[in-house]
Design a binder for these strands. Structure first.
Length: 477
RNA sequence: CGGGGUGUAGCGUAGUUUGGCUAGCGCGCCUGAUUUGGGAUCAGGAGGUCGCAGGUUCAAAUCCUGUCACCCCGACCA
């Protein structure tokens, strides 16, 4: 078998990106389809990635003073209906329980699509004084949304996520919290997932149902479509007024609390796949890889090989997440399997190496091979893992930066997108009508108004009226 | 919810147009032997309610009716 032969089981990205994605998700053993439409079985390898995501983010939340709680799965229908915009946003995609045991329920129960209303109800009960604030709560759970069209990780009917819900004394504190979380998200994306993001604010049309403002981190997939990576919402005191979350301030005046909410989900794993993956399968950034290095013993049956491989695994387990493949498959099979699973480094050790006191390291991302003296193994492995993490980010960053095109007219906008999928940046007047027109004409939606603005002109790309906001547009998952 | 597609062993499929003997093949799986630096070889073996229900027929994977499920593309959304 020649080196150039692709793993047949995976469709080329260039041939059919959607099929490639499905193949990778299955072949890397991240998930299995389940008997329930639109729901997936998270297999050990896929769940291990989620556990690493949880561990990392959870520690960041706790460092910044947040506490974990757990709210019920069910929301009484009347509670969900309290906030008008919120219920309009979520009602069409709710699963509803109407029967308990054998009896029809007096009040229907909504399976949570998100838990704002439960947190609000609880906050109304426990917040009385400014001394009770801020409340900085987070929960890890799953939520259900009755999606029409589902895809593993990107859009499932039930998905795992974290949702943070906070209550503050002042509008300023709530805004600061919203932005602080957005920074946690963007740092996580860039430093851990090696995915560059554009930070910005959502337009009125795209913001969360019931929020005053929504901030987002947007990323670009390999096919140059957009993936909303995480959102952080400032609710102002809107929900507090609806749910009666009031406290007595230092001046003995009754005030409404200011709230935020924010979340990221298993969708991030879809992002990792679509940003870093290639035609040989998954490519995982070392910082999020459940296995960072896999040892493949060569000619395992030969005296001493397996022992040496195990010894190396032991040594390296102090500096990395290491695994060893001692199955009786052929080495070639093991190489391909390790590549499909996106393991950042592969270490080959065989009789010839042992004689010379060396081993072979191979990078997953670019397949570069290194012959390494066993004496300096720890240093080399540490350095390579750091290098791979950096290189993956740099590659993705270049992809993002080189695929954002400016447009100054709707005609130009359309013709660019007819040529290729990419992000478009334009000036925009702020009118939702223009946003809708662009969507209808190009199927691109506003991704965000980036914090880092540029002066591309002074008129709206759509209507030609004065404009002072730059918006990033793109076709989104 | 609209458009398209697919259901035959764990996976991928042939056979369906034109009904006919024991439903064929590849991968995978199990046993044994030889192998091992890019998905090894040979020998033997196990595995099937042909999505489901009804109908036509001497005979149905194949024809008819109904139904269910899943996938892809839209609209909606993390």
């Amino acid at each position: 078998m020649s080196k150039d032969i692709k793993i047949e089981a995976i469709t080329d990205m260039e041939t059919d990106f959607a099929q490639w994605y499905t193949d990778v998700v299955k072949k890397a053993e991240l998930i299995d389809y389940s008997p329930v439409r639109g729901c997936m079985v998270l297999r050990p390898y896929g769940y291990a990635i989620w556990e690493l995501i949880q561990k990392e983010l959870d520690s960041k939340f706790k460092e910044s003073g947040h506490e974990n709680v757990y709210m019920p799965l069910f929301i009484p229908e009347s509670l969900l209906q309290k906030e008008k915009d919120h219920v309009e946003g979520f009602a069409p995609e709710c699963a509803v329980v109407t029967i308990g045991g054998q009896e029809p329920l007096n009040e229907r129960l909504i399976v949570r699509p998100t838990s704002e209303t439960l947190f609000c109800d609880h906050y109304a009960n426990i917040i009385e004084s400014y001394r009770d604030l801020p409340k900085l709560y987070n929960q890890w759970c799953s939520v259900v949304r009755w999606e029409k069209n589902t895809r593993p990780f990107l859009r499932t009917m039930e998905f795992l996520w974290q949702e943070g819900h906070t209550a503050h004394e002042t509008a300023e504190e709530a805004e600061a919290e919203t932005l602080k979380i957005l920074d946690i998200y963007s740092n996580f994306y860039e430093n851990i997932l090696a995915i560059p993001v554009i930070k910005g604010r959502k337009t009125e049309r795209e913001k969360f149902a019931g929020a005053k403002s929504t901030y987002t981190v947007e990323s670009m997939m390999h096919d140059k479509k957009a993936l909303q990576g995480g959102t952080s919402h400032n609710f102002g005191d809107g929900f507090a007024k609806t749910f009666g979350i009031q406290f007595t301030d230092k001046n003995n005046k009754l005030q409404y609390a200011h709230q935020t909410s924010w979340g990221v989900s298993t969708r991030m794993i879809g992002g990792i796949i679509m940003v870093h993956g290639d035609n040989n399968g998954l490519v995982l950034p070392p910082n999020i890889a459940p296995i960072q290095l896999i040892v493949v013993p060569i000619a395992m049956h030969k005296e001493g090989v397996l022992d040496k491989a195990k010894e190396i695994k032991e040594r390296l387990s102090f500096i990395a997440r290491v695994s060893i493949d001692e199955s009786d498959k052929s080495p070639g099979w093991k190489f391909s399997e390790a590549e499909m699973k996106g393991i950042p480094l592969r270490l080959e050790i065989g009789p010839k190496d042992i004689e010379k006191g060396q081993c072979v390291l191979v990078r997953r991302d670019n397949r570069e091979k290194y012959t390494i003296q066993l004496s300096s193994l720890e240093n080399e492995v540490s350095a390579l893992l750091i290098k791979i993490q950096k290189d993956l980010f740099a590659k993705a960053k270049k992809h993002l930066d080189s695929n954002i095109r400016p447009a100054t007219s709707i005609q130009e906008f359309e013709s660019i997108l007819n040529e290729e999928t990419c992000f478009i940046k334009t000036m925009w007047c702020g009118d939702g009508a223009c946003e809708l027109e662009i969507k209808e004409k190009t199927s691109a939606t506003s991704r965000c108004m980036p914090f880092e603005q540029e002066e591309l002109g002074d008129v709206c790309v759509c209507c030609g009226k004065p404009a002072n906001k730059m918006v990033i547009w793109g076709k989104a998952y």
